[in-house]
Design a binder for these strands. Structure first.
Lengths: 379, 379
DNA sequence: GTGAAAGCGCTAACAC
DNA sequence: GTGTTAGCGCTTTCAC
């Protein structure tokens, strides 16, 4: 039994006349049964189109011949439906799977796909790899693109394909569906909160601003030229808000990190505090970085928020556990909305942009700065 | 420009004579250029087969006509290569993405796929859904099946497809490639450790034993009939080890949980301790459950390991952070090995089984039991 | 270096 | 309820 199965599996077991040594096809099944291909096809796809008895015979013969049912690729070619959604994620997977915000999006997207009964095809695309062939090779009905830089070659490849595309977060492209939080409002709410507390000596920790690695301070020029729309927007909004309360943005240190881990957040905070020890608040463009900053503050014996205010962005579970002041965005919903949008794309004609709500969550890591006197003499 | 692009995108923009309103094809491109289809195909797939000049012309015309390159599905049909690996995961994705062990496997698999430049196709298959159509619809070159019950219908569907399959962890099927840790040895090392410390009043927390929900005590019969090979093996090995030191396994409470979360581990521990307060050690078949048990112990004011020994299984990062005594298994390697095995499947003929090493890691959650006197009068 | 012929395996009209 | 016809869009010998 097992032997037969193996032989059959490896295509060595052919009990039907055939030129090649491959398995049975719908045509060969039809021939064996003495019916037309249509009938066999119907047995699988439209059970109501043929008598139960005939259907039983077809399926039974199929089993006997080891016919595994209609070939999905051939069917896709014919029906012009791949039954899968592509996900483009230009990030190390090892990282993507560890970032709760990314996992949330992935999960939401997967849920939407599951609801629709379509597969989720992860396109292999590491950050370094310029190879976009994988995008062209993916047999999918559409793509979800998650947070890539403006000039990502994979994104260009995706857009060149004649299938609907939904971008999550970034970049912002006219004519392309998008799902993203109201980034501007969100970051402004944090900035207002921090500025409102009275902080004027601030520092910023941000994520990668370009496809090139720059682990260190980011000049205003670099900030403005950032290839990542989200970071660019957040920094610009911060600049505007603090300029409005009299802070010269040119004097505000912004530390960039290529990788996005808690450790990187910690080293970024260290770099910031080593050079600018008088900073009273660190605004981070992500919770992950903020958690790192929190760790570094602890290491230096700085009390948060008494000595230092730290804020994040995203509202991941770890952040609320740590009591981080942050902006929450519904990441799972983001992914799910993207999936739904994509799967309903054929119904629409005009590009749609879904903006998700965000919410400032004041935790225990933000407070008014100590006065200069307090700083030197204690409260 | 944008308008043109949009029109083209939605197939309304046809500058070529065509019956349908769909985009250009390789054939239409060839016609336009006055060359054969072969030449156009070569321009994409075998650049060395035609003059650079001609190739340039082809690509240039393609761009002009908005031809997105060879259709991946048609190509797959012709080449009999889908360029994707299917992943069958009969578990709520929301859970799968939260379980570090599962994420590790996923990540390793994704890495292997990335190395090979093939996509990873997540098959939509929730636990409840009996719908196996998605398996048949997936255009993939093979499947990786991650930890499903013996009688999973999706698994049956996968095996009916004429593509190679690699099973990770469970079930154990003759003739099918598999990658799994040495479960037996691993759990015995924990059991020996606990038994060696002198524990005789033990309790066990285990994961789902069948596709039916049974949140509560699991009879020996149920243990032995478990549809999940891994759990069955682990429980059997525990039974054997403790019987060997004089414990009657019939008296050992085993609490089962359908869902696999820290909270479930906590409620399971509560149920166990409420009914069997004299238990001195809780052996858990996963770190997640053990972390829950740890939390519950804290809630009850039980000191670990002074009052209660707790052990886990998997060696996830959270476990080492908590100092949990556990068995570590290389989850990332497991996924990567599965991917490599699958992608090299055509080279082999005989089924291969890869067994990964495990390692007992004694932490700070295991110690000898207090004597009866100590229990009542303190140390 | 280029082209002609021959399908890959299937489904959707439409006719019977 | 069942069969006939006509491709879906592509690659791949093999000839020229």
């Amino acid at each position: 039994m097992l032997l037969l199965w193996l032989l059959n599996r490896y295509g060595l077991f052919m009990n039907r006349p055939m030129r090649t040594r491959r398995g049975a096809t719908l045509a060969s099944l039809a021939a064996e049964l003495g019916v037309s291909r249509t009938t066999v096809s119907n047995a699988y796809n439209r059970p109501d189109q043929l008598s139960p008895e005939l259907r039983r015979r077809v399926l039974e013969t199929a089993r006997r011949l080891g016919y595994p049912g209609p070939d999905p690729v051939a069917r896709s070619l014919r029906t012009r439906k791949a039954g899968a959604v592509g996900l483009l994620l230009t990030e190390n997977l090892s990282y993507a799977f560890r970032d709760p915000a990314a996992v949330g999006v992935l999960e939401g997207l997967a849920l939407a796909c599951e609801d629709a009964g379509v597969g989720l095809h992860l396109v292999p695309a590491s950050p370094g790899r310029e190879e976009v062939a994988a995008v062209h090779r993916a047999g999918v009905d559409g793509f979800v693109v998650y947070s890539v830089p403006d000039d990502d070659p994979h994104l260009a490849a995706v857009l060149s394909r004649p299938v609907p595309t939904v971008i999550v977060d970034q970049p912002r492209l006219d004519g392309v569906d998008r799902v993203s939080p109201d980034d501007e409002t969100a970051i402004v709410s944090v900035a207002d909160h921090v500025a409102g507390l009275g902080h004027r000596q601030i520092g910023v920790l941000c994520m990668r601003l370009g496809r090139d690695r720059n682990d260190g301070f980011a000049s205003v020029d670099r900030q403005q030229r950032a290839h990542y729309h989200v970071q660019r927007t957040r920094l610009a909004a911060l600049a505007r808000t603090f300029e409005a309360v009299g802070v010269d943005w040119n004097t505000v240190p912004v530390v960039e990190r290529f990788d996005h881990t808690v450790d990187d957040g910690a080293t970024a905070a260290r770099q910031l505090l080593d050079t600018y020890p008088r900073v009273t608040a660190i605004i981070c463009t992500s919770d992950i970085l903020a958690l790192g900053a929190l760790a570094e503050a602890g290491r230096r014996g700085l009390r948060v928020p008494a000595d230092l205010t730290i804020t994040g962005f995203d509202g991941i579970a770890e952040a609320s556990r740590a009591g981080l002041t942050t902006v929450h965005q519904p990441v799972l919903e983001k992914g799910r909305a993207a999936g739904r949008l994509l799967l309903s794309a054929s119904d629409r004609v005009k590009p749609e942009v879904i903006t998700l709500p965000t919410e400032l969550r004041v935790g225990t890591t933000s407070a008014p700065p100590r006065t200069a006197e307090e700083q030197w003499f204690g409260p």
